[in-house]
Design a protein around this nucleic acid. Structure first.
Length: 894
DNA sequence: TTCATCACG
DNA sequence: ACGTACGTGATGAAA
């Protein structure tokens, strides 16, 4: 079985078992209850660990491998220091009950695991990594940053960052770049700063910042103490002197022992072959159905075996079957697939239909346009259960066989239940809901350049049939959950009807004047050439201005401009940085202009020209099940980020025109909808009064935070800063963030916020309460009961937790605003039909709706659209809508 | 594929 | 002592 090792370069992979098991456990801490086997054993850590391991093995392909575990609570470190790891809370019983099974699992995979009395996993890893130096490259994977001290030219340490999916790779260079010290010096740093999680003290009042400074200056703790007497008198010096012993002890504790008395060596940890039987037994014992299924699928080499595993009663649909199937009054599941994402361009590759346990599939699209199938599709009394009603609607409309009566959409329901699992792959979602009898599209069609329709029509047919069956079988359980969550109205009255409205908007598209774009393209091309020549002159040579790397070299190495900010690949050359360099050198202004034009040219001129259809229109796709807040997003092309703020870019909008002569573009937008939602949900009387009395909300805020007595004292700049503060509140403010955004000191920002909360006390109460709500129930809700789960609200990691807290504040606001405009869109479409108007709703840009209409209908829209929008929902404050119109989108902006 | 950058609300 | 605004998508460069 050593054959594998012979053909491949040797490579050692060392895993920190305890640390990864902890990570794995807490990654799915929230769904603890969903992961238990038939005997009540929790399996979440095992499951996540298994997923991690699969990813890691695929990526690393080691020839030698070991997973190291801690042996017990006492080690040589606890002998040195009683309280080592003394404040660690007890391992949760739900995790410790899983630990014994890790070994069993690794055995089945043919991977070595090891623990050693009196030593920690770190020491085992350190010792083996040392043994491997000069023999083979080593990769260490852990959740514990302390192991980065083992980094060498031969040893890479990868540390889990976000949850378990992302790894940060530490090489000596990366350590140097991040901390400014060598890997070996990490123990000196730890010695000085101590470690709260391992509970050793370090030197009083010395944290990471100070520790790093000292290590950079002196090199090591030992040298530092040789020179401590020479330091000038300070609190720091005093603390260093007092805590000398502690520092030395802490350094010892932080040092990984690379000479542990192991009873194994490299030769013992070659990877062995998987033991399929053991693996199956393990998956069965743990109830890992999806992993079992995958094993079966990967085992079966012929399609016949795969079909047998799927156990579905499916057959190819022939015309003669149609009357029999379509006459049934029972609801049918209907699934139609394309290979890619763009259902406006691609043709379907096949479809499936059926109910209960009779399934039919076909690649013959002409069946769909037979009179009987068309009649069945168009009849809303024949209920259809689908996955992605918008896609289905667009595809069938394009085929000339419009569909009605889609009463269940698995994709939409799944998204409403949990925005986090927002895959568009039916198989993935079905698995998440515990339904295994269907493969993912990725598995059947492949990905990237290998993506293709399966050669065997039966394989495709069965996959389609399995998908239809999954839709059918998941309907009842998911609708029950929806009802339990009090989200059935959100689905029935908002998302389901909205999908059809969006389908019409997408199908309609918006006309683009490509002549206009071509003219702009030539103009931009000339200007880019001119500026480019000047920039080359300034730099003294040619280079790629679009390359941040090359640009950084020119500005900071060659022209010696001051470095303002760095990022992980080198110098930052972002707008913020360049603006601070303005005046230093004429090249800066030229680069800023070049950047601006080149952005417009690539993304909005050539980018847009590429996606114009033969009907002279662009047909975006609105993603209805993507965002975490309930907003839509727009792709292919994105029509929600067409330039508007700068005059130059704004002209792009002149290319968006009506599809008929004598028509106009009409646009209406909500004024400050998010702040109004905040006034509503917080119940703040002052903020509500401002909106009810039509007071300029930003000026109102300015008066308070600048302590002014009269509105006339508010300067435009004060208003600008107040506006930023209002936004800050909506985003889940911090003084630092506000300070950075409007360029004031952090203390001043803190004062603004304090004054803000004084003026709007119930807003302060709201932000506090909503975070508490998130902690208590694990999710937050919008006014229409849209949910966002926030598992990180309990995270130990400050960053993750803070982020969750900010989103807890922001999501109900942004999400409720999204709810409101969605209701408005549904009502709007309805009213346009009722009033027999030719006007078409074309676009939604979060708080605005864009239409095209005959010029004669503009006066009607000017009344109708705002009235529909401002009455979409009833809030405690009025909703205000502004409108504008003109011959192009550019002109339809107030 | 990932990163940096920049367009929008 | 931490490291910070919320939500998106497209592009070109570089790996």
């Amino acid at each position: 079985m050593a054959a594998v090792a012979d053909v491949k370069q040797d490579k050692l992979l060392l895993l920190d078992g305890n640390s990864l098991a902890f990570r794995a456990f807490f990654a799915l801490h929230n769904s603890l209850d969903r992961f238990t086997n038939s005997e009540g054993l929790h399996t979440n850590a095992l499951y996540t660990f298994s997923n991690m391991l699969e990813t890691i093995l695929a990526a690393e392909q080691p020839t030698h491998m070991l997973v190291a575990f801690d042996a017990g609570k006492t080690t040589f470190r606890t002998q040195m220091f009683d309280d080592y790891k003394g404040n660690r809370s007890k391992t949760p019983s739900e995790l410790s009950e899983q630990l014994p099974y890790f070994g069993e699992y690794l055995d089945a995979l043919g991977i070595a695991h090891y623990q050693l009395v009196d030593y920690e996993a770190d020491d085992i890893i350190g010792t083996l990594a040392k043994e491997a130096q000069g023999q083979m490259p080593v990769t260490i994977i852990t959740g514990d940053r302390d192991l980065t001290q083992l980094t060498t030219a031969n040893t890479t340490v990868k540390v889990t960052v976000k949850g378990v999916n992302e790894l940060e790779t530490y090489t000596p260079a990366h350590v140097q770049e991040k901390l400014g010290i060598t890997p070996k010096q990490i123990i000196d740093m730890k010695g000085l700063m101590g470690d709260t999680s391992d509970n050793y003290p370090g030197v009083t009042k010395v944290g990471e910042k100070t520790a790093l400074k000292l290590v950079k200056e002196y090199g090591s703790i030992e040298t530092l103490y040789q020179h401590v007497a020479e330091m000038k008198k300070s609190k720091l010096k005093e603390n260093l002197e007092n805590d000398h012993e502690q520092a030395v002890l802490s350094k010892k504790l932080a040092t990984i022992n690379t000479a542990a008395p192991l009873t194994i060596s490299l030769a013992d940890i070659k990877r062995q072959a998987e033991n399929q039987e053991k693996l199956i037994a393990f998956y069965e014992a743990m109830d890992f159905k999806s992993k079992l299924a995958k094993l079966q699928i990967s085992k079966s080499t012929t399609s016949a075996d795969a079909d047998a595993a799927q156990k579905i009663n499916a057959q190819e649909l022939v015309a003669a079957d149609l009357p029999q199937i379509l006459k049934s009054p029972q609801p049918q599941a209907f699934e139609i697939d394309i290979l890619g994402d763009n259902y406006h361009l691609e043709m379907p590759i096949g479809f499936a239909i059926g109910a209960a346990d009779h399934w039919y599939y076909s690649q013959d699209l002409s069946l769909l346009t037979t009179p009987e199938f068309k009649a069945w599709l168009a009849n809303r009394d024949h209920e259809k259960y689908v996955f992605d009603s918008k896609k289905t609607e667009v595809l069938l409309t394009r085929l000339g066989a419009p569909i009605a009566g889609m009463t269940f959409d698995l994709l939409l329901v799944s998204y409403l239940l949990n925005t986090f699992d927002n895959s568009n792959d039916l198989g993935v979602l079905a698995h998440l809901h515990g339904y295994q009898a269907v493969q993912t599209d990725l598995e059947v069609y492949g990905k990237g350049t290998k993506r293709a329709v399966p050669m065997d029509p039966e394989v495709l047919g069965h996959h389609l049939a399995c998908k239809a069956q999954a839709i059918y079988r998941l309907k009842t359980p998911l609708l029950t959950q929806l009802k339990d969550n009090d989200q059935d109205q959100l689905y029935d009255e908002i998302e389901a009807p909205l999908a059809l409205v969006l389908a019409q908007m997408e199908l309609n598209g918006i006309t683009v004047d490509s002549q206009r774009l071509q003219t702009m393209r030539l103009d931009f091309e000339k200007r880019l050439n001119d500026i480019q020549a000047l920039i080359y002159e300034d730099a003294g040579h040619e280079f790629n201005i679009n390359s941040p790397k090359q640009l950084g070299t020119v500005l900071f190495d060659e022209l010696k401009l001051p470095v303002i900010k760095k990022n992980k690949t080198g110098y930052s050359t972002s707008v913020e940085v360049l603006e601070q360099l303005q005046g230093d050198n004429p090249i800066i202004d030229r680069i800023l202009t070049y950047r601006q034009i080149s952005k417009l040219q690539s993304t909005y001129i050539t980018g847009l020209l590429k996606v114009i259809h033969p009907d002279h229109k662009v047909h975006t796709r609105y993603l209805q099940t993507l965002t975490q807040t309930g907003r839509l997003s727009s792709v292919d092309p994105n029509l929600q980020n067409i330039p508007v703020r700068l005059p130059e870019g704004r002209k792009i909008r002149q290319a968006f025109v009506p599809s008929h002569p004598d028509w106009e573009i009409f646009s209406s937008d909500y004024s400050q909808v998010e702040l109004r939602v905040l006034a509503h949900v917080s119940g703040d009387a002052n903020m509500q009064a401002a909106f009810k009395n039509k007071i300029d909300i930003h000026a109102n805020t300015a008066m308070k935070i600048f302590h002014l007595a009269d509105p006339s004292e508010v300067t435009p700049d004060m208003r600008r800063q107040a506006k930023a503060t209002n936004f800050g509140i909506v985003y889940g403010i911090s003084d630092y963030g506000l300070a950075r955004n409007i360029g004031i000191s952090r203390t001043q920002a803190a004062n603004f916020i304090a004054a803000y909360f004084e003026q709007y006390p119930d807003v302060e109460r709201y932000v506090k309460d909503i975070v508490e709500v998130a902690r208590q129930q694990g999710y937050v809700e919008t006014i229409m009961h849209r949910r966002r789960y926030l598992p990180d609200i309990h995270a130990k990691n400050y960053n993750l937790r803070s982020f969750a807290e900010r989103t807890a504040m922001n999501t109900p606001i942004q999400g409720s605003a999204a709810d409101i405009i969605k209701v408005a869109m549904i009502n709007m479409q309805q009213r346009l039909a009722e009033e027999n108007l030719q006007a078409k709703m074309l676009l939604q840009v979060h708080d605005e709706l864009i239409f095209e209409a005959p010029a004669t209908e503009i006066p009607i829209l000017e009344k109708l659209v705002p009235s529909v929008m401002d009455s979409a929902v009833k809030l405690d404050v009025p909703l205000v809508v502004d409108s504008a119109h003109g011959p192009t989108w550019y002109d339809a902006k107030g």
